[in-house]
Design a protein around this nucleic acid. Sequence first.
DNA 1: CGGACAACCTGGCGGC
DNA 2: TGCCGCCAGGTTGTCC
Length: 288
Amino acid sequence: MPELPEVETVVRGLREALVGRTILAAEFPKPAGRMTNIDADLLAARVQGQRVRSLSRRAKYIVAALDRDTLLIHLRMTGRLYIREPQQSDPADAYLRVRFALNDGHELRFSDARKFGRVLLTDAPDSILPALGPEPLEPEFTLEAFAARLAGRKGVLKSLLLNQAFIAGVGNIYADEALNMARLHPLRTADSLSSAEIKRLYHAIQQALETGITMQGASINWYRKPDGTKGEQQQHLRVYHDPRQEKDKRCPECGTPIQTMTVGQRGTHFCPKCQKVRRTAAKAHAKG
DNA sequence: CGGACAACCTGGCGGC
DNA sequence: TGCCGCCAGGTTGTCC
């Protein structure tokens, strides 16, 4: 599931090969369906001849600034973005949805088995992007700013972390990882947190995401780097896992079997020992 | 604001 | 072996 670390890895992996190139043509092998925000033929006509000025990331969106427009790509579940030579095939080509011809002879391809991904072209990206919270790894995201955003919130932490309008880029994997690192139960509510817990959560979010980037993303199932290889983060996950592939997953801190539950319609993984629903009165007293 | 739920999709898995 | 049915998940939209 491409989240901030996975999308960041894709952006970094494509930047050198893409920035400065000019898009000569766009081809849609199959009907675009809901994938694009405008008619596919119109999109193809508009990108033609535009140079890629920069490649960046906002939340889970890949942002390609072109001469006159901005190309926004969201991988959602199974989207993949990669550059190949025209005759060079890739397993992901089975689900190819867009092919951009570049002026250096290469192709930028977008494939997507589940068809949830989005390819958007606009001259006003702010007007079509949804409300997005702060970037957790930017310097503006301070502990004070995070605490201020939490103030007044009452929802459960797991759902809040997944809310892109609250904080950008966190998805199901890294929400569970961050909550385990912070030793907070997924069902704890925002208004129940002490200052110390807010601080733990703040650092845990950043640490979980930074580790994910260092490991170049988690290839639990569909995610691959632009070169087609897997990331490494799936080998370092603390609680998140696929129970069918990984039975007997245990907490790295205490060895307790990881528990799973559903929170806000999302599979949720946590350590029942490290992540209590609430501190017990005895423990709270003992800790002062 | 927040929770619940449906919808979008389809590969891959469990179950039989 | 083969077929059926369900689940996964990011996001949006609806409803209360």
